Amino acid sequence: MSRQRSVTIVCSPRQRVGKTLLARALTEFILADGRAAIAFDVNPNNAALYGFLPRYTARVDINTTRGQMALFDELIAEDEVAKVIDLGDELFDKFFTLLQQIGLTEEAQRRGIDVVALFIGDPDPRSAKSYAQTYGALPFLKLVPVHNEFIGNMQDYMNDFPSAVPGERPVRFPVLSPFLKSIVERPGFSFDDYMDYRAGTRTELHEWIERAFVEFRELELRLLLRELRSALAPR
């Protein structure tokens, strides 16, 4: 994802695969890096991301034309704000159909805005089918597979979610133990604040946050390499 201008869609057509936690950690990573960010909670029945990051999150209803227009106008605004979308599974098909219909990825490309989809894989065959369909329908979308270690062994199913670039590994999102989950789900908890407040100590949660943030940093570098290869390719 571009450091300055990006739209990152955290998605899966399946429930309970870690979308909100991933979107939340990514938003905090961008903010901790000193960049401006806004998250969009596109979950009609459970605005969990908004509950965790109310200062940086807007709730969006894409079941209305007004909500669709407001969101898509924000996504292609020519500003220096990174956007993160927590996309509810029940709106997966509708959201990507709308993107295709209005040509948002093409318009974003024209404006120099990266549109990245972090697709969390899982063993259900319907997920792999949706992954392939999304890749085929939106050629300007940078589709990136994510292995959430909470779901299971990567070798058991992640071959069904190939990267668009041969040899490029998926994002590996570390498993969060039940104890650590109980901490991060407390009202007002911030990953960045925890790192600052507990700077003199070393805990399991420090290691989890650092590992997640390193994954995001390495993802940015891999996507930058994609851009460089594309720019240097013979035309």
Rank of each mutant, 00 (worst) to 15 (best):
Q101R: 07
Q101K: 09
A117H: 00
H147C: 15
Q155S: 15
Y131D: 05
N153E: 15
F119W: 08
K129W: 09
L99Q: 07
D114T: 14
I113K: 07
Y135I: 06
Q155D: 08
I120P: 03
S130K: 11
P125N: 05
V115W: 01
Q109K: 12
L99K: 00
Q101D: 10
I151N: 06
G136F: 07
F119T: 06
R126C: 00
T105S: 09
R110I: 04
A128Y: 06
F150A: 11
E106V: 06
A137P: 10
P125E: 13
D124G: 03
L104S: 01
I151E: 08
V144W: 04
P123V: 08
V144A: 06
R126E: 12
P125S: 04
L141Y: 01
P139V: 08
L104D: 04
S127G: 14
G103W: 02
A108P: 11
T134C: 13
S130M: 08
F150D: 00
D122I: 00
P123H: 05
D114I: 08
G103K: 13
G112W: 00
R126T: 09
E107K: 13
P125D: 12
Q100D: 10
V116F: 02
F140M: 14
A132G: 10
L138Y: 03
S130V: 05
L118C: 05
G121S: 02
D124H: 11
P125R: 07
D114S: 15
K142A: 14
A132Y: 12
Q100C: 03
V144R: 09
V144E: 07
R111T: 02
Y131K: 03
N148A: 14
V115I: 13
F150Q: 03
I151R: 09
F150W: 11
Q100R: 11
K129R: 14
G152P: 09
Q155M: 07
Q100E: 12
Q109Y: 00
K142T: 14
F140P: 03
D124T: 05
F119G: 02
A137S: 10
L141R: 06
G152K: 08
G121N: 07
G103D: 10
D122R: 01
I102P: 03
G112N: 04
G103Q: 03
P139C: 09
T105M: 01
L141K: 13
I120F: 02
G103I: 15
L104G: 07
A117S: 11
L104N: 02
Y135E: 13
V144Q: 08
N153S: 15
E149H: 02
V115C: 11
R126K: 08
P123E: 04
S130E: 14
A128I: 03
L143R: 06
P145E: 14
G136A: 12
V116G: 11
V116W: 02
R110S: 13
L143K: 02
R111F: 00
M154T: 09
I102A: 00
D124R: 10
F150E: 05
V115M: 15
G136I: 05
R111W: 00
A137W: 06
N153Y: 12
K129Q: 06
A128K: 04
N153G: 07
A108T: 12
I102H: 01
D114C: 09
